[in-house]
Design a protein around this nucleic acid. Structure first.
Lengths: 202, 202, 202, 202
DNA sequence: GATGAATGAGCCTTCATTCAT
DNA sequence: CATGAATGAAGGCTCATTCAT
């Protein structure tokens, strides 16, 4: 009744939503996107299907928020990396090793790719995804630029372009780690970094 | 007995199957995998749904053959590249520019990734895909090794590992070219090659 | 937590299932088994097709439960008959007249026979049906034995064998009463009983 | 070209049709009616589906002719039995033992019952089946009458009614011999005959 | 809010029948 | 006549979404 309760309710609601989305990521990481249905998500969050619809209008909305959440989290992660102490190579190393070590990231990558290429998903959502993808390139580009200026990173290329390659490479590698895939080659952070590093090659 | 030419029939059948698969790739390239249904494929090949089932036992079989076909084609392509005249850099350049210029390759990439990560697809098929993926790495690895020996390509890494990075990078980039995606950065073959090239960086 | 009564829900669910199965028997009795589709059953139970699948996993499961239900009911009926007061002849008379008077019994008989001879039905189900059929022979065999001992029923045969004949005869007759069949001969309980009776023949 | 050829052609055609029907019975006896499709029949007769339609207009027609054929054959069999030398009991014994020993008869029985109870089969065909069923009762009824007059068979009942019971019993028993059914009771001709015999029971 | 039963459009697949060769 | 590719209506089943309690 009091404004305080309303505020608290809204907060609770947001927390619940976040919890549901987190649960959803877990199932998707296990079952794959195509095979994850609303009842799977409901079960993962230990709520009923009906109740799920109290928090999200539709599967598309879950999808959209999921994308927003994961991309935002990723953006925060990359931004933090760009601002940590150390030189550019250290920062890239941090991004690379952290990202590759999180075993469910493949789900995130496929989630995004699927979202962008699935016709049934509204163009609006898909555009937002691409928008964020591009935005998330900026912190990495900043690292690249910094590295070029300090002479650590390959010069002569557009930093944004380099960032694009770096992220694409990592995403490509991530896909090879989906469950059931047994590529016997393990990517090594050092080797990957070296591709972008200067002076290492004589 | 038969007023028909049996041999010719068999040939025709194979041709028809190939035609259907080619058509299927086209639709998938347009609509996305998840949204491509049997009637879409039938329509794309201008045949009836029922007839589709004369050539393929199930959607899964189409899937499997599609994967086999595209991966085999890709293997031939990479093998041919590895055997063309010129040095390793020339060969990588050829692979890279050719691959990135084919606009439907994103479909191929997603097709494969989805196949590998979709639970409902029989494990057998998924394993075959990974198997072929790994096998297709070999010709690229051969190029890398050749390049390392001739001093054109980054030394000190396992050639297979380098091939893995190269292919993952290109696949990652390919994904950004799916329909409806408008990343404003165009990958440039020269810049990509340079990542693996030696002596270009002082 | 739940505004609903869980126990009551479970009870309701069982009741609904029973209701659906009863409805299914009705349609089958009218349309024949081969021509009864899921939508017919759904319509008969006045529910949607989708909802039908909340109660039963598949058509086969409906089939199996239908068989279980009808055979169990039949078993109870025969057992009750074997335990009613009166001599063996009275009991057979009761079974025979009751059974022949129920107009939908032909459906039950064909249901069982079809189940046993339809390849597409899992062997497990078919074996269970035969198992129950054999078990249901026992109470009738008991009546036969009792009759033989009291001198009412034909001696010199295995009671179980006699039961087998009795039941087969009644089943055979039941088949002649399917809808659309107009055999102009009406089976008479007394005449049928007489076949197994002693002393009636000089 | 000559009338002779035309005649011969017609004869050939009839022979082919008979061959196809015989083949059809074989498949049905193995696969069950519901699971026997046009291509199964075509394959069993070693002809193409298309060619099958040169001999029969539709599946229903095959069905109808199959029923006609089997019922006619049965009629001839029963008529022959009624006219063979020996007393009524001998004749019944012959019918019973012969019928029960033919292992595919269950298919015949189910074929007829299914035909009569399947809505999709035209009423006309179904009526014809019942008509023939009734007609085929006559020779058996004649045997019964003869037996009553000679004092071998139960008196006091309508011979036709007795025939009805006899045939129903045998049909009912036949059903228990379908493939995959393992009722551990073997019907014995002598015991069955005894049910209708006089003087055996004191 | 919470629950899960109910709905129905739509997907994959089958199969009797037709038709071009 | 012979063949089997082609057709398409219809059946079984799934699953996002709604609704009564």
């Amino acid at each position: 009744m009091s404004p305080r309760n309303i505020e608290k309710d809204l907060l609770m609601r947001e927390e619940r939503k976040k919890f549901i989305l987190d649960s959803a990521v877990q199932v998707i990481a296990t079952k794959g996107i195509g095979s994850t249905h609303m009842n799977d998500i409901a079960a993962a969050a230990s709520i009923s299907i009906g109740n799920l619809y109290h928090y999200f209008k539709s599967k598309d909305e879950i999808y959209a928020e999921l994308l927003y959440m994961t991309q935002t989290d990723y953006g925060l992660f990359v931004t933090a990396a760009s601002q940590m102490p150390g030189n550019a190579i250290d920062k890239l190393r941090y991004i690379c090793s952290t990202w590759l070590s999180i075993s469910t990231n493949w789900a995130f990558t496929i989630l995004i790719q699927t979202a962008r290429t699935t016709e049934s998903i509204p163009l609006e959502i898909r555009n937002a995804v691409t928008e964020r993808f591009t935005a998330n390139l900026q912190p990495v580009a900043a690292i690249m630029k910094e590295g070029q200026e300090s002479g650590h990173i390959l010069d002569g290329e557009d930093p944004l372009e380099l960032a694009f390659y770096f992220v694409s490479l990592i995403q490509g590698l991530t896909l090879q780690r989906a469950p059931g895939i047994e590529v016997r080659i393990t990517p090594k952070t050092e080797s990957i970094i070296r591709l972008f590093q200067v002076g290492f090659k004589k």
